[in-house]
Amino acid sequence: MSELTLTSAVVLSFLSVAFFLAFVRLLRGPTLPDRVVALDLIAVVGIGFVSAYAIASDQSILLNVASVMALIGFLGTVAFAYYLRRKA
């Protein structure tokens, strides 16, 4: 069990790196679609975060959070894509 806890800690810290990289892209842009892609990646990394934390803390209920994040991330991207089309 303790190996798994250790792995989760390492995994969570590496996921923070991915989160940070996506965040840099979100800040740098240069265009709006780039930022949307970065947001999408952030949502997916968030799903990874929650799942890894669910394993670390042994709470399967957190899987629901991951599912909802997947749903909302997709809806957000679709909404942004429509917005971009409308604006053009």
Partner: peptide
């Protein structure tokens, strides 16, 4: 995690 970091 590897794939996520690579994606980032």
């Amino acid at each position: 995690t590897f794939f996520m970091v690579v994606g980032g």
